[in-house]
Write a protein that binds this DNA or RNA. Structure first.
Lengths: 201, 201
DNA sequence: ATCATTTCTTATCCTACATCAAGTGTGATC
DNA sequence: GATCACACTTGATGTAGGATAAGAAATGAT
């Protein structure tokens, strides 16, 4: 069943009755997103959170010079949204796009508020999710402030081992924070040093 | 009264009865922190959140080369903690130090859990606080990926106008993500360009 | 007041990364 | 199966910001 994964993920943090589960599921809307399709674009108001059940999304911003910077990937089992826009109700700056064909469940902001009222435990659930996410961003910020591109790449490999061979390299570069050109050179160097290089292809 | 500020801040997001307020306040412990004193150091487990009622704290990490990187400042009215350590219960990597003599209220993790049970609305309160914090880190990450040091400094000036003339410049540099030397050069340049330079002294 | 410590500045040289430019695959589309 | 669009590579050159060093100014301790 397509809600199995999300119920499992919820069950890790809070315990729901059958009825509560049914109510929760009733608020979710399945969504099919084709590769390269956007579910959110710069300037739009983000009206829902998205839980990925298969495939992968990416959230990124585009700077003044047209360069993309990847904020997060949303592989299977992850939530993704433009949090700034979602909580403020103002137009956001993020784009969210499918990297591959993706199946997801969406939960609108309005329904999320209803959920908080009807099943207050969800306040806890989303608090915990948000806390974990916060810690990840803090760590990434520290990494960006203190590590070289090479070390950041190693961290990326550790943190998202499943993504390394799925993702176009330029997306990894945009996550690490280097140009595709430099990323290419860096890999060349790593391959020379170590024949068990992380990326094949 | 020294709990006035924190109750105001709570009241912005949830509504408490008199009794609830009393219970909440009973869990808070006043703490006086002298300038340069640490309330948390690398390798320790963070056991409480700290709400600053006056003065200012800073959270920073120290990298392999001994350089400090400021993750956040905790001026009056802000919460600060090593979230990673606090939620995982594992030794953390952050240091938290008073930049000036500071008065604060602490809430232990154990008491925070009690609070969640006794007044579930606090799940909501901390969810919202955490969400806002998450958005700030996201934005800062984007800034670090897409802006020059100069632009990041401008953002810092906008976001923390009150801190600019309070803080040692090297701390601002460690927040922006540049060396004190480069920060100094940058300012020199800005002063030349604009006689209304943000920092005096 | 004086000495010590730390912060801030300035100058010179250096490097990790960007930019620009010109390629080579490789898969989609007609 | 030719063309187009992209992802990726490689090389030459440029630059934002780092490293090192050394002095000036501010702060703090005695």
């Amino acid at each position: 069943m397509f809600t199995e994964l999300i119920l499992q993920s919820v069950a890790k943090h809070i315990h729901l009755t059958e009825d509560e589960q049914t109510y929760f599921v009733s608020l979710l809307h399945p969504k099919t997103i084709k590769r390269k399709q956007f579910i959110l674009q710069y300037g739009q108001v983000c009206k829902y959170s998205t839980f990925v059940t298969s495939g992968c999304l990416r959230g990124f911003s585009v700077d003044e010079n047209g360069f993309e910077h990847v904020l997060n990937f949303g592989p299977k089992g992850w939530w993704i949204a433009d949090m700034y826009s979602l909580i403020s109700g103002k137009p956001g700056i993020l784009n969210i796009e499918a990297i591959e064909n993706t199946e997801a469940l969406t939960l609108s902001k309005a329904d999320q508020e209803k959920l908080y009222i009807k099943i207050p435990q969800f306040e806890r659930f989303f608090r915990i999710i948000t806390e974990n996410s916060l810690v990840a961003y803090q760590q990434r910020l520290i990494d960006n402030l203190s590590l070289t591109a090479e070390d950041r790449f190693h961290n990326f490999c550790k943190r998202y081992p499943s993504l390394i061979n799925e993702l176009p390299k330029k997306q990894i570069a945009a996550y690490i924070g280097v140009t595709p050109e430099f990323f290419s050179r860096m890999q060349h160097k790593l391959v020379k040093m170590d024949r068990n290089a992380p990326i094949k292809r």
